[in-house]
Nucleic acid binder design. Structure first.
Lengths: 157, 157
DNA sequence: GTTAACGCGGATAACTGATATCCGCGATTA
DNA sequence: TAATCGCGGATATCAGTTATCCGCGTTAAC
């Protein structure tokens, strides 16, 4: 089980965007994080399709958050990049073999699937409790109070 | 993000083993669940290496749980199959680019990684709260009180 | 009006990991 | 001695991730 590396990129980009003043081009976000421009573009397009960021085309285009950082959760970003499917996928093996479960019993999900999905729900709830704004605060605490001032400066360059 | 299909197989096998009277061969477990014998064998070997099941070789060999079902959690099985690595892997992109985080600040994990790992911890805690015995009970409730009697009967065939 | 910077979608390719099978080996028992 | 079993290695296939490139339309500056 592995999360796409794009999740990390997307989250960090959202934190930067939450502190930017205007639209930030993908090129700029890629440079800032030292990552591939073309591949990052794909992930930003996913964020755009999910409605988390808006894109402006043309000469001075780029990406911006559609909502304040406090209204975008980590879960929003993760689902936008990873998709909304559950990590655990029940293949209903209880219906196989010499003693298959009755169609009657299979109306509800099996105990294994229920437990796995409950765990995944706990994961999602935890991610839901963290916003981009929260992460921005933690970055500021770790890297110093002038961090985003310098980020904005560099973005304006 | 997707969990290995082997997790589902392994969990269901553990439930069956918790109700078996002697060692159950991989062949038998595969037949019972209508799945590939050779591939299931690989997963059972992983459970064996993790210490969740013991294997007896030879003519009347097979697999058995090393502990009562109540002492084996869903998390034990998932980690045995999926490995113990976190799904989210921080690549420290904060250290890249024109404004890299200071080595000082990087002594602790970044806020993004902390939040992702906290969510994963919540997932693990949830899995830790469910035992094989719990799952056996839920199977019995869903499929009827004589279910495991018939399972043992078929295994003995 | 032309040019340059930008986002968008499609095509493509390399690489990785999951899925799956087969084989020979040693162990055990009928 | 033969049949049944687990074990590990080699191998093949397939899907998903990672990544790049291209042409297209859009927009602003010159």
């Amino acid at each position: 089980m592995k999360l796409s590396g794009g999740v990390e990129w997307a989250v960090h980009c959202c934190v930067v965007l939450s502190q930017a003043e205007g639209p930030v081009p993908a090129q700029r976000l890629a440079e800032f994080h030292g990552i591939s421009r073309t591949y990052l573009a794909k992930h930003l397009q996913q964020l755009s399709r999910a409605g988390l960021v808006s894109s402006t085309e043309g000469r001075v285009g780029g990406y911006a958050l559609t909502r304040p950082g406090g209204e975008i959760t980590l879960l929003d970003v993760v689902l936008a990049i990873e998709g909304r499917e559950q990590a655990f996928r029940c293949t209903e093996i209880r219906q196989n073999g010499p003693l298959p479960a009755s169609p009657q019993a299979c109306k509800k999900a099996c105990g294994v699937a229920r437990a796995m999905h409950a765990a995944e729900q706990a994961w999602r709830e935890s991610l839901k409790g963290v916003t981009i704004a929260d992460l921005a605060v933690s970055v500021e605490q770790d890297a110093g109070p002038d961090t985003f001032v310098r980020v904005r400066e560099w973005l304006g360059t």
